[in-house]
């Protein structure tokens, strides 16, 4: 790898540098509690639920769309599955399949309206987010207890002392990164997000690509609902409510373009973890929660600004100015 390539690699993956910097910053303030394996383990674990929502949003953003309903899909699919599983005595492993399927179906509904009927994704997913939110209340108001251990395992069990959710999160990050980089579907997704008209003229069925992006996003949201349920040990009717903006933040901090076609899943994972580190660090400082929220906003802004400066740095490196 020559010097230019090395610089480009560094710039393209700047989120990890920012993440390391923020981690060390909190580590200096709270060295005994922050700089420990247990703390890293904890941050990875509590980031896993949000991580899947960030992945879901990233897939939609890459296709040039966005999805406001992913948090509500997570809540709705988790609640429907929990009720069916408990009432019918469905085995836990079938529940796991079901929650992903329901998430996918919800995503397919969005995909149909956006991809096939070509309605505006903002308006469609605004409508479906309200619809799924209230449908959850139709299904059940309150918590569902007594879910099978197998169903709760992905979000709550440990393997050799490490939470299973962490393996699932990292495994999916690698899988999605591979799919996006090495498959036709992945390249079509980037292409549609970059220039949908040019992609259509190349003979690619763009409607189908957009539809499939929403389906995948819905399935990933379903997995998030599964992990949330395992994390709490129960399914609640307000599960994952209000998480959509942090999902956007995670993706954008990770360098995913809001206009589509640019970004990477692994960097979106970096964005998710950065949010987790900021939250854990500020909470451990035990400052007033209102200030904590304010600082979170400031740190998110700084991270976005630093990350957005990548493009300028990239251009300079390519033009030989750096």
């Amino acid at each position: 790898m020559n010097s230019k390539k090395l610089k480009l690699f560094f710039v393209d993956n700047m989120i990890w540098v920012i993440l390391l910097g923020v981690f060390l910053f909190f580590g200096i303030i709270k060295p005994r509690t922050f700089l420990t394996f247990q703390n890293v383990h904890f941050i990875l674990y509590v980031s896993s639920m949000m991580g899947f929502l960030v992945f879901a949003e990233t897939i939609c953003l890459l296709s040039g769309n966005f999805d406001l309903s992913i948090g509500e899909i997570a809540g709705f699919s988790a609640m429907v599955t929990a009720v069916i599983t408990v009432k019918s005595g469905l085995p836990g492993y079938l529940g796991i399949i079901l929650v992903v399927l329901i998430g996918g179906l919800c995503g397919a509904f969005n995909g149909l309206l956006v991809g096939k009927i070509r309605l505006n994704p903002f308006l469609v997913t605004l409508g479906t987010s309200i619809m799924f939110d209230w449908l959850t209340m139709v299904v059940r108001r309150g918590s569902v207890l007594g879910l099978p251990a197998v169903y709760l395992a992905p979000g709550g069990a440990r393997v050799f002392g490490v939470y299973l959710a962490i393996f699932i999160l990292l495994g999916f990050a690698i899988l999605l990164a591979f799919v996006l980089a090495k498959t036709i579907w992945g390249s079509n997704l980037y292409s549609v997000g970059g220039n949908i008209e040019a992609t259509r003229r190349c003979g690619i069925n763009t409607d189908k690509v957009v539809f499939s992006a929403f389906v995948v996003a819905g399935m990933l949201a379903g997995i998030s609902g599964l992990l949330y349920t395992g994390y709490m040990g129960v399914a609640t009717s307000n599960l994952a409510d209000g998480t959509v903006f942090m999902a956007f933040a995670g993706a954008v901090i990770g360098g995913v373009s809001l206009t589509g076609g640019r970004g990477s899943i692994l960097n979106a994972l970096g964005g998710t973890l950065l949010l987790g580190i900021i939250e854990a660090g500020l909470t451990m400082m035990a400052i007033d929660p209102a200030w904590q929220g304010t600082f979170t906003g400031v740190l998110v802004l700084v991270a976005i600004l630093l990350n957005q400066s990548r493009q300028i740095l990239r251009d300079r490196i390519l033009m030989g100015e750096m």
């Binding site: 994390y231 129960v234 994952a240 929660p289």
Partner: peptide, 24 residues
């Protein structure tokens, strides 16, 4: 008194509580 916000939500409260219990 250490105060965290849980926003009435079990998952958020669990994360915040565990973070504090790790440090104090």
């Amino acid at each position: 008194a250490i105060t965290v916000v849980g926003d009435w939500d079990m998952a958020q409260a669990k994360t915040a509580a565990e973070t504090v219990l790790r440090a104090y």
